[in-house]
């Protein structure tokens, strides 16, 4: 069987006071064995709820899901032996040391650090110098590495990582993704969620999630390939004024700041860019730069949100 995770028409609602929150609305997707699959979306998209259902910690209201060929309701005990889960909130024992946490989780799964050392080696060597430190006294980056080691200690077939890079600096994020690629080479299926759109391009395939729905599922290239409108990057000496002038113009469909540029689409796909340029020059913009560009995942995400 080549499917590691299968989700079919899953719905989940929560009651909060008088209001009912629909956390997941008809979610379906498959993850192939050995795939690095990303759930990309902001807080409240439903990523954590989905993880909880797949790790058998929560039951869906409707629909069904399978992990490693086992059904999440009927076979929950077996699934728990085969998956590793790193929740978004640090959930290890704060007053146990690094070593003690690892041996605790290893013992739960009838294994030991030595037995699966190859798998955790790359990560463990980075926290080994602090092995006698209590987990609660570790920094964010180190906690993250310890949590990943604990999630891997029983050599799981499928690894679920809920926002492992949130709040982590750009360098540590890059290193973390390098680690995930190495784990993937060892045959582990990885489902990882992130609110950072730039990390989507590091996955084999991604699901873009918003408000409990999947807006699109595809490879990163497949997703950006679906962005049909011509996209322009513009900048000038006064970026704030540039945004105002563009948004006030009726020929402009969208104008979003993107780092050093604004990304712009026109209402009419055949709109010539020269009249727009002249209009901006007339408005007094200096150092104007206009360039046609390829969309990023973030452009696509916003376009899907606006539909």
């Amino acid at each position: 069987m080549s499917t590691a995770v299968k989700v079919e028409h899953v719905f989940k609602t929560f009651q909060s006071g008088k209001t009912q929150i629909e956390a997941l609305k008809d979610i379906s997707f498959d993850v192939s064995k050995g795939e690095l699959f990303g759930l990309i979306g902001p807080d409240g998209a439903g990523k954590t709820t989905l993880f909880r259902i797949l790790t058998t910690l929560m039951i869906a209201n409707k629909g069904n899901a399978w992990v490693d060929g086992l059904e999440v309701m009927g076979d929950y005990k077996e699934i728990r032996k085969r998956v590793g889960y790193m929740p978004g909130r640090f959930s290890l024992y704060q007053d146990l040391t690094v070593e003690e946490n690892l041996s605790f989780f290893a013992t739960l799964f009838n294994t030991s650090l030595e037995e699966n050392y190859d798998l955790v080696k790359d990560i463990y060597v980075q926290i080994e110098p602090f092995k006698t430190r209590r987990a609660g006294a570790l920094s964010g980056g180190m906690k993250q590495k310890l949590a990943l080691s604990c999630a891997l200690i029983h050599s799981p077939n499928v690894l679920f990582l809920d926002e492992p890079t949130t709040g982590v600096d750009a360098v540590s994020r890059q290193e973390f993704w390098e680690l995930l690629r190495k784990l993937q080479l060892q045959g582990i299926t990885i489902v990882v969620s992130t609110p950072y759109m730039d990390e989507a391009s590091l996955c084999d395939r991604v699901a873009l999630m918003q408000d409990g729905k999947i807006m699109d599922i595809d490879s990163p290239k497949g997703i950006t390939g679906k962005f049909k409108k011509p996209l322009w990057a513009m900048s000038s000496a006064d970026m704030y004024k540039l945004m105002h002038d563009l948004r006030a113009d009726e020929r402009i469909d969208t104008c979003y700041p993107f780092g050093q540029h604004h990304h712009i689409t026109f209402k009419d796909d055949h709109q010539e860019v020269n009249p727009i340029e002249n209009f901006l020059i007339d408005k007094g913009h200096k150092g104007l730069s206009i360039e046609k560009i390829e969309p990023t995942i973030e452009d696509c995400f916003m376009e899907l949100m606006n539909r």
Binding site: D43, G167, P195, Y256, M302, M305
Partner: peptide, 24 residues
């Protein structure tokens, strides 16, 4: 201090528009 963590990309940009306005 890390004001925009976790929000969707459109809201993140609306937030930055507010920052621009305040600076203005």
């Amino acid at each position: 201090d890390e004001p925009t963590g976790g929000v969707d990309p459109v809201t993140r940009r609306e937030f930055w528009t507010m920052i621009y306005e305040a600076a203005h």
